[in-house]
Design a protein around this nucleic acid. Structure first.
Lengths: 210, 210
DNA sequence: TGTACATCAGTGAACGCGCGTTCACTGATGTAC
DNA sequence: TGTACATCAGTGAACGCGCGTTCACTGATGTAC
């Protein structure tokens, strides 16, 4: 029953000046998201802060959700790229339990660091959960990563049925995101312990699947 | 840098008729949240659907966040009450691993069921994550439950330092919420497997703490 | 290499809508004697 | 037990603001010959 809101960029900027404007809108929106929530964010306010007039923004984005979508895509892609590289470098494998745990912790730390570096990362993370149409993007990204996890671990756990292993990987990836968001939302509250315990939790689970 | 928005109910209804109006607003808002997101929800729209005029609503709620706050409180309290009762009935204890796991699964199922029964539960859950001031309520509720978990398990794991055990319980509770929201958001996608695997994950972790 | 023209990029100003909110009022309920 | 009065509850109508959006236009960039 969600009303469809067009998200696609109207025009892709071609000239260099236009590319700058496009990026300026995104960067300004990201900065503003740090201060206010995505709910308070308006196109007019973005224009004002960026020193642009509304038609300049509307040339590239039909509404604020289109801006959030690009920001969300970029944040997720930044994280996805790192996770995929980590997986392909054998992130889930290791000679000992300790080694596998250490790799997992390093990866989880990196996820947190990426979200913290990203302008407005916290608010974008929230929007990805709360805005129905961004949520779909989040699920696509998560399922894609879960598939990669599945492919990576499938040969190691031949006894586990495919349906269960797939669902388990989806759960692991989702809870990994939740844990990193937990740290990003409250960075002063035992971030390191939370990360370690989360990874320990996951490592023990993988141990049992063997 | 969040702008403070007053959330407190202006007046508590005294007469029966007023109590009905108060509840009607909440129920209508809950229903509307099922259809649209909380971002699209407006006080005027609630009034229209409820067959009230705006001043009637404003008599009890200063803005839509105050309504969301009450709904969020009710949802969280409904879940908290069940978890606390479960804990006090020895939910985390059991003679065998299987027994402890089964208790955990029953509890997790109940959490999902409560959110699904609650009108607008999905959208309220999202709002609790995405709206900064509701988020604080969520943290308070979560920390309270985490404290209860801590008290319940403290005697069983005397070797674990307090800081670590507290953080671990906070993580467990947070990930438990995340897992139940995952099921609520996508109820058709292997809900049962997700619940079982989540509880298995937690149970293995508790096993290792011994 | 310069000029003419087409296309791209952004401006200034304004619009209509609907959101949050309030004012002055009427009607309903409770209570003191 | 009835009446007068105070308080509670909700209405009708309207307000100002700012949001999303658009129109007609000027200026900048690219390109064909």
């Amino acid at each position: 029953m969600n009303i469809a809101i067009p998200l696609e960029a109207k025009l892709q900027p071609t000239q260099a000046r236009a590319q700058d404007t496009y990026e300026l809108v995104l960067q300004t929106a990201g900065e503003m998201l740090c201060d206010m929530g995505f709910e308070q964010l308006t196109t007019n306010a973005i224009c004002k802060r960026a020193g642009l007039t509304p038609p300049a923004l509307y040339r590239y984005f039909p509404n604020k959700y289109a801006i959030l979508k690009v920001l969300g895509d970029r944040l997720m892609t930044a994280q996805d790229d790192v996770v995929i590289a980590w997986l392909e470098a054998g992130g889930l494998t290791g000679a000992t339990f300790e080694e596998r745990l250490a790799k997992s912790i390093a990866n989880q730390r990196e996820m947190v660091a990426i979200a913290q570096r990203f302008p407005g990362g916290v608010a974008i993370g929230r929007a990805l959960r709360a805005v129905p149409m961004l949520q779909e993007l989040r699920f696509i990204s998560r399922d894609m990563i879960a598939d990669r996890f599945y492919s990576a671990v499938r040969p190691h756990f031949p006894a586990i049925p495919a349906v269960r292993l797939r669902a388990a990987m989806r759960m692991i990836v989702e809870l990994g995101y939740a844990a990193s968001e937990m740290v990003v939302e409250e960075p002063d509250r035992e971030a390191d312990i939370i990360i370690r315990e989360t990874c320990l939790l996951f490592a023990l689970y993988f141990e049992q699947l063997r």
